[in-house]
Design a protein around this nucleic acid. Structure first.
Length: 569
RNA sequence: CGGGGCGUGGCGCAGCAUGGUUUAGCGCGCUUGCCUUGGGAGCAAGAGGUCGCUGGUUCAAAUCCAGUCGCCCCGACCA
Protein backbone atom coordinates (compact mmCIF):
# COMPACT_ATOMS: atom_id res chain seq x y z
CA UNK A 1 0.00 0.00 0.00
CA UNK A 2 1.17 3.49 -0.75
CA UNK A 3 0.54 5.83 2.12
CA UNK A 4 -0.24 8.71 -0.18
CA UNK A 5 -3.27 6.84 -1.48
CA UNK A 6 -4.56 5.55 1.83
CA UNK A 7 -7.48 6.85 3.80
CA UNK A 8 -5.83 7.36 7.16
CA UNK A 9 -7.21 10.41 8.90
CA UNK A 10 -4.83 10.77 11.84
CA UNK A 11 -5.45 13.42 14.45
CA UNK A 12 -2.95 15.25 16.58
CA UNK A 13 -5.19 16.14 19.48
CA UNK A 14 -7.09 13.79 21.76
CA UNK A 15 -10.75 13.55 20.85
CA UNK A 16 -13.15 14.94 23.40
CA UNK A 17 -15.43 11.93 23.31
CA UNK A 18 -12.79 9.44 24.42
CA UNK A 19 -11.80 8.58 27.93
CA UNK A 20 -9.68 5.46 27.78
CA UNK A 21 -6.41 5.18 25.96
CA UNK A 22 -7.32 2.60 23.35
CA UNK A 23 -10.35 4.65 22.38
CA UNK A 24 -8.32 7.84 22.04
CA UNK A 25 -5.61 6.14 20.07
CA UNK A 26 -7.99 4.31 17.77
CA UNK A 27 -9.55 7.61 16.82
CA UNK A 28 -6.25 9.46 16.57
CA UNK A 29 -4.66 6.73 14.47
CA UNK A 30 -7.59 6.66 12.07
CA UNK A 31 -8.81 3.18 13.05
CA UNK A 32 -12.41 4.04 13.84
CA UNK A 33 -14.96 6.83 13.71
CA UNK A 34 -18.13 7.12 15.67
CA UNK A 35 -21.44 7.28 13.88
CA UNK A 36 -23.74 7.31 16.90
CA UNK A 37 -23.47 6.34 20.54
CA UNK A 38 -21.88 2.91 20.65
CA UNK A 39 -21.87 2.57 16.88
CA UNK A 40 -18.62 2.80 14.94
CA UNK A 41 -17.22 2.70 11.44
CA UNK A 42 -14.00 0.77 10.99
CA UNK A 43 -11.62 2.66 8.74
CA UNK A 44 -9.05 0.90 6.55
CA UNK A 45 -6.30 0.61 9.16
CA UNK A 46 -8.61 -0.53 11.94
CA UNK A 47 -10.29 -2.97 9.64
CA UNK A 48 -6.94 -4.44 8.66
CA UNK A 49 -6.24 -5.20 12.31
CA UNK A 50 -9.73 -6.50 12.83
CA UNK A 51 -9.37 -8.84 9.86
CA UNK A 52 -6.06 -10.12 11.16
CA UNK A 53 -7.71 -11.05 14.45
CA UNK A 54 -10.57 -12.66 12.55
CA UNK A 55 -8.19 -14.71 10.47
CA UNK A 56 -6.35 -16.01 13.49
CA UNK A 57 -9.68 -16.91 15.01
CA UNK A 58 -10.77 -18.69 11.84
CA UNK A 59 -7.60 -20.68 11.53
CA UNK A 60 -7.75 -21.88 15.10
CA UNK A 61 -11.46 -22.63 14.96
CA UNK A 62 -10.99 -24.60 11.77
CA UNK A 63 -8.02 -26.41 13.27
CA UNK A 64 -10.38 -27.79 15.89
CA UNK A 65 -12.87 -28.85 13.27
CA UNK A 66 -15.35 -26.07 13.93
CA UNK A 67 -17.17 -25.00 10.79
CA UNK A 68 -17.95 -21.47 9.77
CA UNK A 69 -21.47 -20.40 8.94
CA UNK A 70 -23.15 -17.01 8.81
CA UNK A 71 -26.44 -16.53 10.59
CA UNK A 72 -28.87 -13.64 10.23
CA UNK A 73 -28.46 -10.41 12.11
CA UNK A 74 -32.22 -9.97 12.21
CA UNK A 75 -34.18 -12.63 14.04
CA UNK A 76 -37.87 -13.38 14.51
CA UNK A 77 -39.60 -12.98 17.84
CA UNK A 78 -40.97 -16.53 17.78
CA UNK A 79 -37.58 -18.16 18.29
CA UNK A 80 -36.90 -15.98 21.27
CA UNK A 81 -40.27 -16.79 22.75
CA UNK A 82 -39.44 -20.47 22.47
CA UNK A 83 -36.27 -20.10 24.49
CA UNK A 84 -38.04 -17.85 26.94
CA UNK A 85 -35.62 -15.04 26.37
CA UNK A 86 -38.04 -12.70 24.65
CA UNK A 87 -39.29 -11.99 28.17
CA UNK A 88 -36.05 -12.38 30.05
CA UNK A 89 -33.54 -10.58 27.92
CA UNK A 90 -34.72 -7.11 28.78
CA UNK A 91 -34.07 -3.85 27.05
CA UNK A 92 -30.70 -4.83 25.70
CA UNK A 93 -32.59 -6.70 23.03
CA UNK A 94 -33.50 -4.22 20.33
CA UNK A 95 -36.95 -5.08 19.00
CA UNK A 96 -38.90 -3.71 16.08
CA UNK A 97 -41.65 -4.47 13.58
CA UNK A 98 -41.43 -5.10 9.88
CA UNK A 99 -44.02 -3.78 7.42
CA UNK A 100 -46.11 -6.89 7.83
CA UNK A 101 -46.39 -6.27 11.53
CA UNK A 102 -44.08 -9.15 12.43
CA UNK A 103 -41.96 -8.51 15.46
CA UNK A 104 -38.22 -8.96 15.11
CA UNK A 105 -35.05 -8.24 17.00
CA UNK A 106 -31.40 -7.57 16.26
CA UNK A 107 -29.36 -10.55 17.37
CA UNK A 108 -27.36 -9.93 20.54
CA UNK A 109 -26.25 -13.57 20.35
CA UNK A 110 -27.31 -16.57 18.31
CA UNK A 111 -28.20 -19.52 20.54
CA UNK A 112 -31.78 -19.53 19.30
CA UNK A 113 -30.90 -19.42 15.64
CA UNK A 114 -28.21 -22.04 15.78
CA UNK A 115 -30.31 -24.35 17.94
CA UNK A 116 -33.16 -24.00 15.49
CA UNK A 117 -30.82 -24.84 12.63
CA UNK A 118 -29.40 -27.92 14.28
CA UNK A 119 -32.73 -29.30 15.47
CA UNK A 120 -34.07 -29.12 11.94
CA UNK A 121 -31.08 -30.66 10.23
CA UNK A 122 -29.49 -33.04 12.70
CA UNK A 123 -31.39 -36.29 13.34
CA UNK A 124 -28.84 -38.85 14.34
CA UNK A 125 -26.03 -39.26 16.81
CA UNK A 126 -23.93 -40.07 13.74
CA UNK A 127 -24.02 -36.42 12.76
CA UNK A 128 -22.68 -35.31 16.14
CA UNK A 129 -20.62 -33.81 17.57
CA UNK A 130 -20.70 -30.62 15.61
CA UNK A 131 -19.36 -27.14 16.33
CA UNK A 132 -20.54 -24.23 14.25
CA UNK A 133 -19.22 -20.72 14.43
CA UNK A 134 -19.59 -17.39 12.78
CA UNK A 135 -18.03 -13.96 12.85
CA UNK A 136 -20.95 -11.59 12.85
CA UNK A 137 -22.13 -8.23 13.96
CA UNK A 138 -24.15 -8.28 17.14
CA UNK A 139 -26.32 -5.63 18.61
CA UNK A 140 -26.93 -5.10 22.29
CA UNK A 141 -28.67 -1.93 23.27
CA UNK A 142 -26.32 -1.25 26.16
CA UNK A 143 -27.55 1.12 28.82
CA UNK A 144 -24.31 2.96 28.63
CA UNK A 145 -21.96 2.24 25.78
CA UNK A 146 -18.45 3.46 26.48
CA UNK A 147 -14.77 3.12 25.77
CA UNK A 148 -15.20 3.07 21.99
CA UNK A 149 -15.34 -0.41 20.53
CA UNK A 150 -14.56 -1.86 23.95
CA UNK A 151 -18.19 -1.62 25.00
CA UNK A 152 -20.22 -0.65 21.99
CA UNK A 153 -23.77 -1.46 21.04
CA UNK A 154 -22.99 -2.82 17.61
CA UNK A 155 -19.93 -5.01 17.72
CA UNK A 156 -18.23 -7.84 15.93
CA UNK A 157 -18.10 -11.16 17.66
CA UNK A 158 -17.01 -14.67 16.92
CA UNK A 159 -19.53 -17.00 18.43
CA UNK A 160 -19.30 -20.76 18.31
CA UNK A 161 -21.79 -23.38 19.43
CA UNK A 162 -21.10 -27.03 20.08
CA UNK A 163 -23.61 -29.86 20.04
CA UNK A 164 -22.75 -33.18 21.59
CA UNK A 165 -24.44 -36.47 22.35
CA UNK A 166 -23.52 -36.46 26.02
CA UNK A 167 -21.69 -34.72 28.85
CA UNK A 168 -18.39 -36.37 28.07
CA UNK A 169 -18.56 -35.19 24.49
CA UNK A 170 -19.56 -31.72 25.58
CA UNK A 171 -16.57 -31.54 27.87
CA UNK A 172 -14.29 -32.56 25.05
CA UNK A 173 -15.78 -29.87 22.82
CA UNK A 174 -15.33 -27.37 25.62
CA UNK A 175 -11.70 -28.31 26.08
CA UNK A 176 -11.13 -28.04 22.35
CA UNK A 177 -12.39 -24.50 22.42
CA UNK A 178 -10.33 -23.79 25.52
CA UNK A 179 -7.24 -24.94 23.62
CA UNK A 180 -8.21 -22.93 20.57
CA UNK A 181 -8.62 -19.81 22.70
CA UNK A 182 -5.23 -20.33 24.30
CA UNK A 183 -3.70 -20.47 20.84
CA UNK A 184 -5.69 -17.54 19.50
CA UNK A 185 -4.77 -15.11 22.22
CA UNK A 186 -1.25 -16.42 22.28
CA UNK A 187 -0.92 -15.74 18.58
CA UNK A 188 -2.36 -12.27 19.05
CA UNK A 189 0.64 -11.60 21.24
CA UNK A 190 -1.28 -11.06 24.43
CA UNK A 191 -0.30 -11.29 28.03
CA UNK A 192 -3.52 -12.98 29.06
CA UNK A 193 -5.05 -15.45 31.45
CA UNK A 194 -7.96 -17.81 31.43
CA UNK A 195 -9.91 -17.36 34.64
CA UNK A 196 -12.76 -19.25 36.21
CA UNK A 197 -15.98 -17.37 35.81
CA UNK A 198 -19.39 -17.53 37.33
CA UNK A 199 -21.88 -19.50 35.31
CA UNK A 200 -24.76 -17.34 36.44
CA UNK A 201 -28.33 -18.34 35.83
CA UNK A 202 -27.21 -20.37 32.85
CA UNK A 203 -25.90 -22.94 35.27
CA UNK A 204 -23.58 -25.61 34.03
CA UNK A 205 -20.46 -26.86 35.62
CA UNK A 206 -17.84 -24.52 34.32
CA UNK A 207 -17.01 -21.42 32.45
CA UNK A 208 -13.86 -19.52 31.67
CA UNK A 209 -13.20 -15.97 30.74
CA UNK A 210 -10.09 -15.05 28.81
CA UNK A 211 -8.68 -11.88 30.19
CA UNK A 212 -6.06 -9.67 28.60
CA UNK A 213 -4.08 -8.19 31.46
CA UNK A 214 -4.13 -4.41 31.42
CA UNK A 215 -4.19 -1.87 34.22
CA UNK A 216 -7.03 -0.07 32.52
CA UNK A 217 -9.20 -3.18 32.23
CA UNK A 218 -12.79 -3.09 33.38
CA UNK A 219 -12.63 -6.38 35.21
CA UNK A 220 -10.72 -7.47 38.27
CA UNK A 221 -8.98 -10.82 38.29
CA UNK A 222 -7.97 -12.57 41.46
CA UNK A 223 -5.13 -15.00 41.05
CA UNK A 224 -2.83 -17.00 43.22
CA UNK A 225 0.88 -16.42 43.12
CA UNK A 226 1.68 -19.99 44.13
CA UNK A 227 -0.68 -22.27 42.21
CA UNK A 228 -2.48 -21.65 38.93
CA UNK A 229 -5.75 -20.51 40.47
CA UNK A 230 -7.31 -17.52 38.75
CA UNK A 231 -10.89 -16.31 38.79
CA UNK A 232 -12.81 -13.19 38.13
CA UNK A 233 -13.99 -11.11 41.02
CA UNK A 234 -17.54 -12.49 40.93
CA UNK A 235 -16.33 -15.99 41.29
CA UNK A 236 -13.06 -15.78 43.24
CA UNK A 237 -13.17 -17.91 46.35
CA UNK A 238 -11.40 -17.11 49.57
CA UNK A 239 -9.60 -19.80 51.53
CA UNK A 240 -9.18 -19.93 55.29
CA UNK A 241 -7.17 -21.65 58.00
CA UNK A 242 -9.02 -23.18 60.87
CA UNK A 243 -7.83 -21.97 64.21
CA UNK A 244 -9.09 -21.90 67.75
CA UNK A 245 -10.54 -18.75 69.10
CA UNK A 246 -11.47 -18.34 72.72
CA UNK A 247 -14.79 -16.65 73.07
CA UNK A 248 -16.94 -15.63 75.95
CA UNK A 249 -20.65 -15.93 75.46
CA UNK A 250 -23.11 -13.36 76.65
CA UNK A 251 -20.91 -10.58 77.95
CA UNK A 252 -21.95 -8.14 75.26
CA UNK A 253 -23.29 -4.73 76.19
CA UNK A 254 -24.94 -1.78 74.52
CA UNK A 255 -23.18 1.49 73.86
CA UNK A 256 -24.52 4.83 72.68
CA UNK A 257 -23.39 5.78 69.19
CA UNK A 258 -25.39 8.87 68.34
CA UNK A 259 -25.62 9.39 64.59
CA UNK A 260 -22.89 6.90 63.75
CA UNK A 261 -24.20 4.77 60.89
CA UNK A 262 -21.37 3.93 58.61
CA UNK A 263 -18.71 1.43 59.52
CA UNK A 264 -15.93 4.00 59.51
CA UNK A 265 -18.01 6.40 61.61
CA UNK A 266 -18.74 3.80 64.27
CA UNK A 267 -15.18 2.55 64.20
CA UNK A 268 -13.61 5.92 64.71
CA UNK A 269 -16.26 6.88 67.27
CA UNK A 270 -15.37 3.81 69.32
CA UNK A 271 -11.69 4.15 68.56
CA UNK A 272 -11.32 0.73 66.94
CA UNK A 273 -10.51 -0.62 63.49
CA UNK A 274 -13.33 -1.34 61.04
CA UNK A 275 -12.27 -4.98 61.09
CA UNK A 276 -13.60 -5.18 64.66
CA UNK A 277 -17.09 -4.50 63.37
CA UNK A 278 -19.57 -6.81 61.75
CA UNK A 279 -21.98 -5.40 59.19
CA UNK A 280 -25.48 -6.76 59.07
CA UNK A 281 -26.98 -6.30 55.64
CA UNK A 282 -30.68 -6.95 55.14
CA UNK A 283 -31.77 -8.30 51.77
CA UNK A 284 -35.07 -8.86 50.10
CA UNK A 285 -35.07 -12.14 48.19
CA UNK A 286 -37.48 -14.46 46.48
CA UNK A 287 -37.06 -16.68 49.53
CA UNK A 288 -37.95 -13.97 52.00
CA UNK A 289 -35.99 -11.43 53.95
CA UNK A 290 -32.54 -12.48 55.06
CA UNK A 291 -29.61 -10.96 56.87
CA UNK A 292 -26.01 -11.31 55.83
CA UNK A 293 -23.08 -10.76 58.17
CA UNK A 294 -19.65 -9.70 57.03
CA UNK A 295 -16.63 -8.13 58.63
CA UNK A 296 -16.79 -4.34 58.65
CA UNK A 297 -13.96 -3.76 56.24
CA UNK A 298 -15.23 -6.24 53.63
CA UNK A 299 -17.97 -6.30 51.02
CA UNK A 300 -20.56 -8.97 50.33
CA UNK A 301 -20.27 -10.86 47.08
CA UNK A 302 -23.87 -11.01 45.95
CA UNK A 303 -23.10 -13.57 43.27
CA UNK A 304 -21.84 -15.97 45.89
CA UNK A 305 -24.92 -15.27 47.95
CA UNK A 306 -27.21 -15.92 45.02
CA UNK A 307 -25.44 -19.14 44.22
CA UNK A 308 -25.39 -20.33 47.82
CA UNK A 309 -29.10 -19.87 48.32
CA UNK A 310 -30.12 -20.46 44.69
CA UNK A 311 -31.80 -17.08 44.58
CA UNK A 312 -33.48 -15.64 41.53
CA UNK A 313 -34.11 -12.30 43.11
CA UNK A 314 -31.83 -10.43 45.48
CA UNK A 315 -31.99 -6.80 46.40
CA UNK A 316 -30.95 -4.63 49.32
CA UNK A 317 -33.91 -4.02 51.59
CA UNK A 318 -35.22 -0.47 51.79
CA UNK A 319 -35.23 1.55 54.99
CA UNK A 320 -38.86 0.84 55.74
CA UNK A 321 -38.29 -2.90 55.57
CA UNK A 322 -35.20 -2.61 57.73
CA UNK A 323 -37.04 -0.73 60.43
CA UNK A 324 -39.87 -3.24 60.35
CA UNK A 325 -37.59 -6.26 60.57
CA UNK A 326 -34.93 -5.01 62.98
CA UNK A 327 -36.78 -2.37 64.92
CA UNK A 328 -33.98 0.10 64.25
CA UNK A 329 -33.09 2.46 61.43
CA UNK A 330 -30.65 1.85 58.59
CA UNK A 331 -27.11 1.73 59.92
CA UNK A 332 -27.93 0.18 63.27
CA UNK A 333 -28.79 -3.39 62.34
CA UNK A 334 -27.26 -6.30 64.21
CA UNK A 335 -27.79 -10.05 64.45
CA UNK A 336 -28.59 -10.33 68.14
CA UNK A 337 -32.30 -10.80 68.59
CA UNK A 338 -33.06 -10.77 64.90
CA UNK A 339 -35.73 -13.18 63.76
CA UNK A 340 -34.73 -13.75 60.14
CA UNK A 341 -32.34 -16.29 58.62
CA UNK A 342 -28.77 -15.05 59.04
CA UNK A 343 -25.93 -16.07 56.79
CA UNK A 344 -22.47 -15.18 57.94
CA UNK A 345 -19.18 -14.87 56.22
CA UNK A 346 -16.62 -17.35 57.49
CA UNK A 347 -14.49 -14.53 58.86
CA UNK A 348 -16.86 -14.36 61.80
CA UNK A 349 -15.73 -17.78 62.99
CA UNK A 350 -12.40 -16.28 63.82
CA UNK A 351 -13.52 -13.02 65.35
CA UNK A 352 -13.98 -12.32 69.01
CA UNK A 353 -15.66 -9.51 70.89
CA UNK A 354 -16.82 -7.65 67.83
CA UNK A 355 -19.20 -4.75 67.37
CA UNK A 356 -22.65 -4.89 65.81
CA UNK A 357 -25.68 -2.66 65.45
CA UNK A 358 -28.14 -2.55 68.32
CA UNK A 359 -31.33 -2.62 66.27
CA UNK A 360 -32.34 0.70 67.72
CA UNK A 361 -31.42 4.26 66.90
CA UNK A 362 -27.98 5.43 68.06
CA UNK A 363 -27.10 2.15 69.70
CA UNK A 364 -24.42 -0.41 68.90
CA UNK A 365 -23.45 -3.54 70.80
CA UNK A 366 -19.88 -4.37 71.71
CA UNK A 367 -18.13 -7.56 72.81
CA UNK A 368 -20.42 -9.76 70.75
CA UNK A 369 -19.46 -13.31 69.74
CA UNK A 370 -21.05 -15.75 67.37
CA UNK A 371 -22.56 -17.70 70.21
CA UNK A 372 -24.70 -14.69 71.02
CA UNK A 373 -26.99 -15.18 68.04
CA UNK A 374 -28.09 -17.93 65.71
CA UNK A 375 -26.70 -18.04 62.20
CA UNK A 376 -27.81 -20.51 59.56
CA UNK A 377 -24.20 -21.12 58.72
CA UNK A 378 -20.81 -19.67 57.89
CA UNK A 379 -19.81 -19.46 54.27
CA UNK A 380 -17.48 -17.77 51.83
CA UNK A 381 -19.61 -14.71 51.12
CA UNK A 382 -17.25 -11.82 50.71
CA UNK A 383 -15.62 -10.25 47.69
CA UNK A 384 -12.07 -11.53 47.40
CA UNK A 385 -9.23 -9.10 47.75
CA UNK A 386 -5.50 -9.17 47.25
CA UNK A 387 -3.87 -10.75 50.26
CA UNK A 388 -6.69 -13.20 50.89
CA UNK A 389 -5.86 -16.87 51.04
CA UNK A 390 -6.02 -19.03 47.94
CA UNK A 391 -8.75 -21.66 48.29
CA UNK A 392 -6.64 -24.28 46.55
CA UNK A 393 -3.16 -24.07 47.94
CA UNK A 394 -3.29 -21.63 50.81
CA UNK A 395 -1.09 -19.21 48.94
CA UNK A 396 -1.90 -15.54 48.70
CA UNK A 397 -4.28 -13.82 46.29
CA UNK A 398 -3.13 -11.02 44.09
CA UNK A 399 -5.43 -8.76 42.17
CA UNK A 400 -4.92 -7.70 38.57
CA UNK A 401 -7.08 -5.87 36.08
CA UNK A 402 -8.07 -7.34 32.79
CA UNK A 403 -10.19 -6.99 29.70
CA UNK A 404 -12.52 -9.86 28.89
CA UNK A 405 -11.89 -10.80 25.29
CA UNK A 406 -13.30 -14.31 25.32
CA UNK A 407 -15.80 -16.31 27.29
CA UNK A 408 -16.58 -19.97 26.99
CA UNK A 409 -19.19 -21.92 28.80
CA UNK A 410 -21.13 -25.10 28.88
CA UNK A 411 -24.76 -24.50 28.20
CA UNK A 412 -25.85 -28.03 28.90
CA UNK A 413 -29.46 -28.66 27.95
CA UNK A 414 -30.86 -25.20 28.50
CA UNK A 415 -31.58 -24.42 24.88
CA UNK A 416 -31.91 -27.92 23.51
CA UNK A 417 -34.66 -28.58 26.03
CA UNK A 418 -36.41 -25.28 25.66
CA UNK A 419 -36.35 -25.58 21.88
CA UNK A 420 -36.55 -29.34 21.62
CA UNK A 421 -33.29 -29.91 19.86
CA UNK A 422 -33.13 -33.70 19.80
CA UNK A 423 -31.43 -36.55 17.96
CA UNK A 424 -31.75 -40.32 18.00
CA UNK A 425 -29.04 -42.18 19.87
CA UNK A 426 -27.69 -45.66 19.15
CA UNK A 427 -30.65 -47.26 20.84
CA UNK A 428 -33.05 -45.24 18.78
CA UNK A 429 -34.00 -43.13 21.76
CA UNK A 430 -34.61 -39.44 21.49
CA UNK A 431 -32.07 -37.32 23.38
CA UNK A 432 -31.38 -33.65 23.84
CA UNK A 433 -28.12 -32.33 22.51
CA UNK A 434 -25.63 -31.08 25.08
CA UNK A 435 -24.51 -27.63 24.10
CA UNK A 436 -21.68 -25.23 24.70
CA UNK A 437 -21.13 -21.69 23.54
CA UNK A 438 -17.95 -19.76 22.99
CA UNK A 439 -17.55 -16.07 22.27
CA UNK A 440 -14.73 -13.76 21.31
CA UNK A 441 -15.18 -10.02 21.05
CA UNK A 442 -13.21 -9.35 17.90
CA UNK A 443 -13.32 -5.57 17.97
CA UNK A 444 -12.64 -5.58 21.67
CA UNK A 445 -9.62 -7.75 21.04
CA UNK A 446 -8.12 -5.03 18.86
CA UNK A 447 -8.81 -2.46 21.57
CA UNK A 448 -7.30 -4.75 24.19
CA UNK A 449 -4.12 -5.04 22.15
CA UNK A 450 -3.84 -1.28 22.27
CA UNK A 451 -4.58 -1.07 25.99
CA UNK A 452 -1.81 -3.54 26.52
CA UNK A 453 0.67 -2.04 24.08
CA UNK A 454 1.22 1.69 23.86
CA UNK A 455 3.52 4.50 24.86
CA UNK A 456 3.42 8.29 24.74
CA UNK A 457 3.82 8.20 20.96
CA UNK A 458 0.94 5.87 20.25
CA UNK A 459 0.14 2.25 19.73
CA UNK A 460 2.63 -0.56 19.99
CA UNK A 461 0.70 -3.21 18.14
CA UNK A 462 1.62 -6.87 18.36
CA UNK A 463 3.11 -8.00 15.08
CA UNK A 464 0.32 -10.46 14.34
CA UNK A 465 -2.44 -7.88 14.36
CA UNK A 466 -0.74 -4.60 13.49
CA UNK A 467 -2.34 -3.02 10.43
CA UNK A 468 1.01 -3.26 8.68
CA UNK A 469 4.10 -5.19 9.56
CA UNK A 470 6.63 -2.74 8.22
CA UNK A 471 6.67 0.90 7.16
CA UNK A 472 9.23 1.89 4.56
CA UNK A 473 9.83 5.56 5.19
CA UNK A 474 11.82 7.74 2.82
CA UNK A 475 12.74 10.80 4.86
CA UNK A 476 12.56 13.09 1.89
CA UNK A 477 10.18 11.96 -0.82
CA UNK A 478 11.48 14.53 -3.27
CA UNK A 479 14.98 13.10 -3.05
CA UNK A 480 15.10 10.77 -6.03
CA UNK A 481 17.59 8.25 -4.80
CA UNK A 482 15.80 7.91 -1.46
CA UNK A 483 12.58 7.18 -3.24
CA UNK A 484 14.20 4.74 -5.61
CA UNK A 485 15.84 2.77 -2.81
CA UNK A 486 12.71 2.90 -0.64
CA UNK A 487 10.58 1.74 -3.54
CA UNK A 488 12.98 -1.11 -4.19
CA UNK A 489 12.90 -2.28 -0.58
CA UNK A 490 9.14 -1.90 -0.43
CA UNK A 491 8.63 -3.86 -3.64
CA UNK A 492 10.89 -6.71 -2.56
CA UNK A 493 9.20 -6.91 0.82
CA UNK A 494 5.85 -7.26 -0.87
CA UNK A 495 7.20 -9.97 -3.15
CA UNK A 496 8.49 -11.84 -0.14
CA UNK A 497 5.07 -11.74 1.41
CA UNK A 498 5.55 -9.03 4.01
CA UNK A 499 2.63 -6.74 4.76
CA UNK A 500 4.44 -3.54 3.95
CA UNK A 501 3.48 0.06 3.39
CA UNK A 502 5.58 2.84 1.91
CA UNK A 503 5.15 6.35 3.19
CA UNK A 504 5.56 8.09 -0.14
CA UNK A 505 3.80 11.24 0.96
CA UNK A 506 5.66 14.45 0.40
CA UNK A 507 5.21 15.33 4.04
CA UNK A 508 7.98 16.49 6.27
CA UNK A 509 9.76 13.67 8.08
CA UNK A 510 8.36 14.55 11.49
CA UNK A 511 4.84 13.89 10.33
CA UNK A 512 5.77 10.55 8.86
CA UNK A 513 7.61 9.42 11.97
CA UNK A 514 4.77 10.51 14.20
CA UNK A 515 2.17 8.71 12.12
CA UNK A 516 4.24 5.56 11.96
CA UNK A 517 4.58 5.52 15.74
CA UNK A 518 0.96 6.45 16.32
CA UNK A 519 -0.29 3.61 14.16
CA UNK A 520 2.05 1.25 15.94
CA UNK A 521 3.69 -0.45 12.98
CA UNK A 522 6.21 -2.85 14.53
CA UNK A 523 9.03 -2.31 12.01
CA UNK A 524 10.27 0.77 10.24
CA UNK A 525 12.82 1.08 7.48
CA UNK A 526 14.03 4.66 7.29
CA UNK A 527 15.66 5.71 4.05
CA UNK A 528 17.43 9.03 4.41
CA UNK A 529 19.98 10.91 2.38
CA UNK A 530 22.41 11.08 5.26
CA UNK A 531 22.88 7.32 5.57
CA UNK A 532 22.23 6.56 1.96
CA UNK A 533 25.43 8.41 1.02
CA UNK A 534 27.32 5.54 2.65
CA UNK A 535 24.94 2.91 1.34
CA UNK A 536 23.00 2.50 4.58
CA UNK A 537 19.40 2.59 5.65
CA UNK A 538 17.98 2.22 9.16
CA UNK A 539 15.79 -0.38 10.74
CA UNK A 540 13.87 0.45 13.86
CA UNK A 541 11.60 -1.61 16.04
CA UNK A 542 8.60 0.19 17.46
CA UNK A 543 9.51 -1.21 20.85
CA UNK A 544 13.10 0.04 20.78
CA UNK A 545 14.43 3.51 21.18
CA UNK A 546 17.39 3.31 18.87
CA UNK A 547 17.51 2.29 15.25
CA UNK A 548 20.20 0.21 13.58
CA UNK A 549 22.16 1.09 10.49
CA UNK A 550 22.19 -1.69 7.95
CA UNK A 551 23.49 -1.87 4.39
CA UNK A 552 20.66 -1.09 2.05
CA UNK A 553 21.12 -4.44 0.31
CA UNK A 554 20.60 -6.24 3.62
CA UNK A 555 17.52 -4.33 4.70
CA UNK A 556 14.93 -6.70 3.29
CA UNK A 557 16.55 -9.76 4.78
CA UNK A 558 16.85 -8.12 8.17
CA UNK A 559 13.21 -7.14 8.13
CA UNK A 560 12.16 -10.62 7.11
CA UNK A 561 14.27 -12.08 9.91
CA UNK A 562 12.51 -9.90 12.41
CA UNK A 563 9.18 -10.80 10.91
CA UNK A 564 10.04 -14.45 11.16
CA UNK A 565 11.02 -14.05 14.79
CA UNK A 566 7.83 -12.20 15.61
CA UNK A 567 5.71 -14.84 13.99
CA UNK A 568 7.31 -17.55 16.06
CA UNK A 569 6.58 -15.72 19.27
C1' C B 1 -33.53 5.31 34.77
C1' G B 2 -31.11 8.92 38.69
C1' G B 3 -27.01 12.63 39.22
C1' G B 4 -23.40 15.90 36.69
C1' G B 5 -21.54 18.22 32.25
C1' C B 6 -21.19 19.62 27.11
C1' G B 7 -23.13 21.23 22.13
C1' U B 8 -19.69 27.85 18.71
C1' G B 9 -15.92 26.38 10.81
C1' G B 10 -13.15 19.43 9.91
C1' C B 11 -10.80 18.80 15.18
C1' G B 12 -9.73 21.11 20.08
C1' C B 13 -11.39 25.41 22.52
C1' A B 14 -12.43 30.99 24.09
C1' G B 15 -16.52 34.36 24.11
C1' C B 16 -22.00 33.62 27.47
C1' A B 17 -22.17 35.47 35.00
C1' U B 18 -23.44 41.71 33.29
C1' G B 19 -27.59 40.91 25.77
C1' G B 20 -25.31 46.00 21.83
C1' U B 21 -17.39 47.83 19.41
C1' U B 22 -17.25 41.00 17.49
C1' U B 23 -17.64 42.17 10.85
C1' A B 24 -18.19 35.78 16.29
C1' G B 25 -12.25 34.97 17.89
C1' C B 26 -7.86 31.54 18.86
C1' G B 27 -4.78 26.95 18.04
C1' C B 28 -4.52 22.76 14.86
C1' G B 29 -6.08 21.06 10.17
C1' C B 30 -7.44 22.49 4.90
C1' U B 31 -6.34 25.39 -0.15
C1' U B 32 -2.61 28.29 -3.12
C1' G B 33 2.35 30.21 -3.63
C1' C B 34 7.32 30.60 -1.84
C1' C B 35 10.60 28.09 1.13
C1' U B 36 11.96 23.68 3.71
C1' U B 37 13.03 17.94 4.34
C1' G B 38 15.97 13.27 10.42
C1' G B 39 10.59 13.93 14.92
C1' G B 40 3.67 16.97 13.92
C1' A B 41 8.67 23.58 10.36
C1' G B 42 8.57 28.98 8.42
C1' C B 43 6.52 33.19 5.53
C1' A B 44 2.45 35.10 2.70
C1' A B 45 -2.39 34.94 0.78
C1' G B 46 -7.10 32.36 1.21
C1' A B 47 -11.57 29.07 1.95
C1' G B 48 -14.73 27.59 5.69
C1' G B 49 -19.52 29.05 11.17
C1' U B 50 -27.82 31.05 10.02
C1' C B 51 -23.12 29.65 17.55
C1' G B 52 -27.36 21.67 17.90
C1' C B 53 -32.72 22.49 16.81
C1' U B 54 -37.61 24.95 17.91
C1' G B 55 -40.13 28.57 20.22
C1' G B 56 -40.20 32.78 23.61
C1' U B 57 -38.39 37.55 26.07
C1' U B 58 -36.24 42.13 23.85
C1' C B 59 -35.48 47.81 19.82
C1' A B 60 -31.43 44.04 19.81
C1' A B 61 -29.86 37.01 21.54
C1' A B 62 -24.01 32.71 20.62
C1' U B 63 -25.17 35.35 25.34
C1' C B 64 -31.53 35.46 29.02
C1' C B 65 -36.01 31.81 29.41
C1' A B 66 -38.69 27.25 27.96
C1' G B 67 -38.87 22.96 25.27
C1' U B 68 -36.42 19.43 22.30
C1' C B 69 -32.47 16.49 20.09
C1' G B 70 -27.56 14.65 20.37
C1' C B 71 -23.15 13.46 23.03
C1' C B 72 -19.89 12.60 27.34
C1' C B 73 -18.91 11.36 32.59
C1' C B 74 -20.54 9.02 37.51
C1' G B 75 -24.05 5.56 39.41
C1' A B 76 -27.86 1.79 39.07
C1' C B 77 -28.47 -2.36 35.32
C1' C B 78 -26.27 -6.36 32.50
C1' A B 79 -25.34 -12.90 28.31
Amino acid sequence: MRFSRMFVPTVKEDPKEAEVLSHKLMIRAGFIRRLASGIYTWLPLGLKSLRKVENIVREEMNRKGAQEILMPFVQPKELWEESGRWEKYGKELLRFFDRGGRELCLGPTHEEVVTDLVRREVRSYKELPITLYQIQSKFRDEIRPRFGVMRSREFSMKDAYSFDVDETGAEKSYMDMYDAYMRIFGRCGFNFRPVEADTGQIGGSFSHEFMVLADTGEDVIISCGSCGYAANLERAEVGFVDRDVTRTKGHFRKVETPGQRKVHEVASFLGIGPDKLVKTIIYNTDKGIIGVLVKGNREINEIKLRNLLALDYLELADEVTIEKVTGGPLGFSGPVGLDIPLYADRDLLFMEDFVIGGNERDVHVVDVNIEDFKAEGFYDLKIAEAGDLCPRCGGSHTSTRGIEVGHIFKLGLKYSQAMNCVFLDKEGKEKHAVMGCYGIGVGRTVAAAIEQGHDENGMIMPFAIAPFEVDVLPVNSSHEESMRVADGIYGTLLEKGADAVIDDRSERPGIKFKDCDLIGIPLRVTVGERNLKDGFVEIKLRTEKESQRVRKEDAVERVLNYAHEFKRM
